[in-house]
Design a protein around this nucleic acid. Structure first.
Length: 592
DNA sequence: GCCGTTTTCGGCCCGACTGTTTTCAGTCG
């Protein structure tokens, strides 16, 4: 675990903590105790307690209500009390005091990969180091290397860790992780000694951002696989190189772990390292209820010692537990196991289901491709139609179209369609700004002329409060010409948080007015978030997955939106642009 | 701090990997 990067942020709100947060706090307590040089067994008790809490399958709320926390092996009186306090109040004096006792510089040092509490304690005690800067100086001057138990390599490793801390402290976009991981897994599969190879972890679950990469390989010759892995192009650093596990860092900062197991161990290992943590907790609980114990090594009788049952693949593993195979995208610990048990998992939409997309740009505003080039790219993808929705006049920064220019583009698109030069039908739309008061950026007459209207916020969303933004969006959704709401929260992954908006109200308004909500597939947006779709689906709101392409190649970004739609549990029927051309024309009420 | 009793304190631990050692300590997931 790493200590949070906002060491002294004042706690303004008192909020109860959930299981994950409490686990992190217990882990942080262990690190802080290490830095202080406390009793090693006390430290281990906190580490064990955190792990035990993390692995329990029962809900924390129920455990506390029924006073059963101490039934968990590894949780005693002291830790149980702390868990209850954190769960109920979100605050713990013991923890706060501990943080105050340990200088901020030392807590920052705990964020350096490869540097743990014990080493920090030693470096602090023997060298008087108390900040990242003085740590760097102590490494460079050879003082660290001269300490007992340390050497040149330790000092070099710490320096590297300091560099990495500055450069790569954050997560990575799904699209970036995918680009790094894809060639690696394909290369692994081509090795003669490799029987099976898969990407695991959050990338396999298609999370919108990825912390690090996990590869699982089945092979009888692990050394050869490891040697190949650590010598890949783009590997900037090898942080571990063993027989069953190796770790590297790629240029750009992505860290990757490779685990090699035997072919018979592969299904359980793949499942375990795919996660999520919450999903695995529920799966282990289910196994226990059936007298089985599930781990990364496999399924065995409860209390058995290593006599694992053999299953051929993940399907077999799920089947053994009375479940249908659950697509990795759904393994977030939500409703997936319940629905799998009843054979009620949704048939998730696939990339091949899509017949086109509606939110795309050309050179007329801030795109880089012409109408013809965009149409040709859509044709290459096998699409039946493409919607062009360039920016409206208020988006000056994006060269937004005036009403005159939009009329001209409308004419140009009508001509293009009647010329028969492409098998792709172009829908004439606009990405019309929702102005500060909820008015739209073009006249009602012009909007009524368009095949469809994409409404979105580009300015001012961050200066307004939640009620104002929410009202602003709802007014737009009530406009008769609006077809769909684009990137509803304005978030930019790893760059900018969403603007404040009451999504429940927005979703209800979309449902009430028969409007669609976009899953913007641009890799930095992926907005609306997949977590919000249960409500939208239940209310019957159609999704529309759009690449928001600004150049011909951008159309292919659709696949990241498809990933999000799958994470949301959506079927083809719940997404507008899986409709064929005739159906889409009907939906948009045009081209009769 | 937890656990399991030898009921008041002594032993405690998950496996893989690295680095500094020459049998082990620290870190990580």
């Amino acid at each position: 675990m790493r200590i949070a990067s906002y060491p002294d942020r004042p706690q303004i709100e008192i909020m109860p903590k959930d299981r994950d947060e409490i686990v992190e706090i217990l882990e942080e307590i262990a690190v802080l105790l290490q830095i202080k040089g406390e009793n090693a067994f006390k430290i281990r008790a906190y580490e064990n307690g955190a792990r035990a809490l993390e692995r329990t399958s029962d809900s924390l709320e129920v455990l506390i209500q029924e006073d059963r926390l101490q039934d968990i092996d590894g949780v005693g009186k002291a830790i149980a009390e702390k868990v209850v306090t954190l769960f109920q109040t979100g605050k713990l004096d013991y923890y706060d005091n501990l943080r105050e006792e340990v200088p901020e510089g030392l807590r920052e040092m705990a964020r350096i990969s490869g540097l743990g509490g014990k080493s920090i304690h030693k470096i602090h005690k023997e060298l008087g180091v108390e900040s990242l800067d003085s740590l760097r100086e102590a490494c460079e001057s050879g003082r660290v290397a001269s300490m007992k138990g340390f050497g040149e390599k330790s000092a070099a490793k710490i320096l590297k860790g300091l560099d990495n801390l500055e450069k790569f402290s954050q997560r990575h976009l799904l699209s970036v992780a995918e680009e790094v991981a894809r060639p690696v897994v394909e290369g692994l599969r081509k090795l003669p000694s490799v029987q099976r190879a898969e990407i695991a972890g959050s990338l396999r679950r298609r999370k919108e951002t990825v912390g690090d990469l996990d590869f699982i390989v089945a092979s009888d010759e692990p050394e050869a696989v490891m040697d190949w892995f650590v010598s890949r192009d783009g590997v900037s650093e090898v942080t571990a190189h063993g027989k069953t596990k190796s770790s590297v860092r790629f240029e750009g900062g992505l860290q990757a772990d490779l685990r090699v197991v035997s072919d018979v161990e592969f299904p359980a290992a793949l499942h375990h390292f795919t996660g999520s943590k919450d999903h695995n907790v529920q799966m282990r609980k289910r196994a226990l209820e059936q007298g089985l114990s599930l781990s990364e090594w496999g399924l065995q009788k409860k209390g058995g010692d290593g006599d694992y049952e053999s299953v051929a693949d993940e399907e077999g593993l799920f089947e053994r537990l009375g479940l249908k195979w659950i697509p990795p995208e759904l393994r977030e610990g939500g409703w997936e196991i319940q629905r799998s048990e009843k054979d009620e998992l949704p048939e998730l939409v696939t990339y091949g289901d899509f017949r086109g997309a509606l939110h795309n740009h050309t050179r007329a505003s801030d795109g880089k491709g012409t109408l013809e080039e965009m149409a040709a790219a859509a044709e290459d993808l096998g699409w039946e139609y493409l919607g062009i929705a360039d920016h409206s006049r208020s988006s000056f920064q994006a060269n937004g179209l005036s009403e005159e220019r939009l009329y001209e583009q409308l004419e140009q698109i009508r001509k293009f369609n009647s010329s028969g030069q492409s098998s792709v039908h172009i829908f004439a739309g606009t990405e019309c700004d929702i102005l500060k008061d909820g008015d739209l950026d073009f006249s009602d007459e012009l909007l009524a002329e368009m095949d469809y209207v994409v409404a979105s916020i580009h300015q001012g969303g961050f200066g307004q409060d939640k009620d104002t933004v929410t009202r602003r969006i709802i007014r737009a959704l009530e406009h008769p010409s609006v077809t769909l709401l684009a990137h509803p929260t304005g978030r930019l992954l790893l760059q900018r948080d969403p603007y404040p908006v009451d999504l429940a109200k927005v979703i209800d308004a979309a449902a009430a007015n028969g409007k669609w909500i976009e899953i913007n597939a641009h890799p930095v947006r992926l907005d609306l978030d997949w977590r919000e779709w249960d409500r939208a689906r239940d209310k019957g709101v159609l999704a529309c997955v759009n690449p928001d392409a600004h150049r011909p190649e951008g159309l292919a970004h659709l696949r990241y939106g498809v990933d999000m739609a799958r994470k949301a549990g959506l079927t083809a029927g719940e997404i507008a642009n899986t409709r064929n051309l005739a159906e889409m024309k009907k939906l948009l009420g045009c081209g009769k």
